[in-house]
Design a protein around this nucleic acid. Structure first.
Lengths: 241, 241
DNA sequence: AATCCATATTCATCGGATCAATTGGAGCTG
DNA sequence: CAGCTCCAATTGATCCGATGAATATGGATT
């Protein structure tokens, strides 16, 4: 195993063992490099890899810190995966999102506080106002859509579940879906589904919430142009070996 | 935004735009660094970050290549997240796994080929033989357990779903669960659940498969010592700001 | 006590040098 | 010609040292 990979694993292990705790500051580069017996450049590459995994975070002029390590943070690199597969794999990501969001919405029905239900209602009204305008601002609709869903799923009582859902539809896909709704009727139908979910939450009815949430995501899936394409497994040319 | 982050995004974008395709070889470091107007060391840090995301892959003496970019590959960094939260968050990961595995098993019931059902049966028999031995080899049981589940979920028809499930219980958690089964009866019960899932698949009955799969993961969840701890949201000291 | 500023600390970036693994072709052998 | 060995070119891996840029710190000033 290469020197860099060894360094990455060493730092990882220090975290797993509790030797490095969330928020803690690491020794300065020169010192840590000496301690690991590697050059500073090499250590920097290891640190850069851990930064990409959201495990470490650097602040120029200050130091290198362990992040909060919260599931939401560590899992949010996944959205990039969804973005890369925006073409062929969008349906597969949405299917996973449908499964999870149905469950999370049901869980949220008995957990979301009243004041957040009020916020949800406001989001809905704003979206409906936007959709009624002569010139539809798709960018704002996408943002409101994301706020609506993440506010619900964040109250499912499971941070991992919420984080995975959040990342199962990257920004690119979400934007593409709304941009694809050239038909005003499609926008109206989508907002109607949102309202149905909202009503189920107001009624504190998990089963209604689950079904409406599933129905909503399914509607999105079926609106995808390449919905029927059951292409599985990305085909890639093998590496020369 | 720093020079390195810019370089990372540039390379990412080249991939999203199709300028770089899976399996393709990148220009040599010196050349690519010049092309991006950065130093070779700096480029290496960007490449190292993309390696950590499983987007790139380097082979000393050969070159740097774009990976297959398959969801299974890109999502497999998630298992590290599960490993870090082996203590407090194991239950949350298992809950997600339960939701997804129930669905995936149901889907697999009508998709898995007959010859793989035979393999499943063999895995089961081998596990039961191991469990009957006077000295139980937990390591092999963990491996068989993983093979059993991944063989099923890999036939759900959705590569993303299979990959997410695969990573929702990292090796550490899985090992801890089986190691925790000091009670021979617990091992037997778990294997019995496996067999129930297997029978449902043999019968090509999605609903039976779904329920038995959910029951199985739930059994694992409830066997966790800290099952009742509903601790949500990792608490971390804020960064100095 | 609050603010401002010079200085030290620390990460960011650069340029070059050497080591190590792989590749591909030259040359040899049968 | 087929197959092998071996050497040189290619290319990433690692190291070293230097400079730039952002932040923190502590003293001076008001």
């Amino acid at each position: 195993m290469g020197v860099i990979e060894t360094a990455i694993d060493t730092i990882k292990q220090m975290i797993v063992d509790g030797e490095l705790r969330p928020g803690q500051k690491l020794p300065i580069e020169k010192e840590l490099a000496d301690q690991l017996g590697i050059a500073r450049n090499t250590l920097r590459e290891a640190v850069r890899a851990l930064i990409a995994m959201r495990v470490l975070q650097t602040r120029q002029g200050d130091g290198t810190y362990v992040t909060s390590l919260s599931p939401a943070l560590l899992l949010d690199g996944m959205s990039f995966v969804a973005d890369i597969h925006q073409h062929a794999g969008a349906g597969e990501f949405l299917h996973v999102r449908r499964i999870l969001e149905a469950e999370a919405t049901a869980l949220a029905a008995v957990r979301i506080p009243d004041e957040h239900l009020v916020v949800l209602g406001n989001l809905l009204e704003e979206a409906e106002r936007l959709a009624a305008a002569p010139e539809i601002d798709h960018g704002k609709l996408v943002a409101l859509d994301q706020d609506f869903h993440s506010l619900i799923t964040s109250h499912c009582g499971n941070a991992v579940l919420a984080a995975v859902i959040q990342n199962m539809s990257g920004r690119t896909i979400r934007a593409r879906i709304w941009r694809g709704m050239t038909d005003p009727q499609a926008v109206q139908r989508t907002l109607g589904e949102h309202r149905a979910v909202y009503q189920a939450l107001l009624a504190r009815d998990p089963e209604r919430a689950r079904i409406h949430a599933a129905m909503h995501v399914l509607g999105v899936e079926e609106s995808l142009p390449d919905f029927a394409s059951g292409s599985l497994g990305t085909t890639a040319p093998p590496l020369p070996s």
